[in-house]
């Protein structure tokens, strides 16, 4: 075996990763501690996990969070994909304006979005709770889906659609049998992306969640304010695991799907 040589860049990278991951590792390690504070490690125990699973309020909130995330991701993926298809049809100024409007939503701070949704829902008289959280999650997820799907649409050769019509397909058949299957990797990637965004959103949710309804990030925040509870460490460890699985899934889909769906097109001039 060849020994790795020491390099400054390698060392730098290692330090960066240690700094980035140390707090998470610290938190996960203490979730297995027998003690009740993070001041000292008291030996291995699963008692905080047991506490967590006995905490029905927390379990309900976990399910709420999952349901909101899945529904929001699903609806945002559908709306966002349709939006991307519509943007693809437009040209010039209209297209640029639509894209800019889309990007503004991406870059504007969550706090602003959350606050504006709060004002919006209050004005319309929508009761804060599940519906308001779901609606706002869908809203901030859509631009992300559009951004994930649009590049896939752009790399699709326009002759593919012509070919579908040429072979007798109607507009719907061309869409469902040629365009959508070809951009499926983009749609899948968009879905997983917004699923993670929705799962861990705090700022927007914090504004629009009501009394009877809460999601994990908001709940953890409010509990952490009341003092350190290692049950939260256990929950965080589980969430970290879930996120890792999601990222893994996203990676598998984009990698595997990307290979099979690579658009084959031999481009040469004179295509007027």
């Amino acid at each position: 075996m060849k020994k790795h040589h020491f390099s400054w860049s390698g060392l730098y990278l290692t330090i960066v990763f240690i700094i980035l991951y140390a707090p998470i590792v610290y938190l996960v390690v203490y979730s297995f501690s027998a003690g009740t504070t993070m001041e000292k490690y008291h030996g291995f125990s699963l008692r905080h996990y047991a506490d967590l699973f006995a905490d029905t309020r927390m379990i309900t909130i976990v399910f709420n969070t999952l349901i909101v995330a899945l529904l929001a991701a699903l609806i945002a993926t559908i709306v966002g994909t349709l939006g991307a298809l519509a943007i693809k049809e437009t040209r010039g100024k209209v297209r640029n304006s639509l894209l800019s409007l889309n990007n503004v939503l991406m870059v504007s701070p969550d706090v602003i979005i959350g606050a504006s949704f709060l004002i919006f829902f209050t004005m319309l008289g929508i009761r804060l709770g599940f519906v308001s959280v779901l609606l706002s999650h869908i809203a901030f997820c859509i631009p992300i889906v559009v951004l994930m799907v649009l590049p896939k649409l752009n790399e699709l050769s326009p002759t593919l659609v012509d070919a579908a019509y040429d072979l007798g397909a109607s507009r719907w058949q061309a869409l469902s049998q040629v365009i959508l299957p070809a951009i499926t990797p983009g749609i899948g990637a968009g879905f997983f992306m917004v699923l993670t965004y929705s799962l861990d959103d705090f700022a927007v949710t914090f504004f629009v969640t009501g009394n009877g309804f809460s999601t994990l990030s908001v709940e953890i925040y409010s509990r952490a304010r009341q003092g350190i509870n290692l049950e939260i460490n256990a929950l965080s460890a589980l969430m970290l695991l879930a996120s890792l699985l999601l990222v893994g899934g996203y990676y598998l889909i984009s990698k595997h799907g990307g290979r099979r769906h690579r658009v084959i097109a031999v481009k040469e001039g004179d295509a007027q």
């Binding site: 002759t159 097109a265 295509a271």
Partner: peptide, 16 residues
Amino acid sequence: NRRQVNTVFQDYALFP
């Protein structure tokens, strides 16, 4: 889609 004409495209346009 209703013409009795079919096309072979320059980039083949095969469905990937």
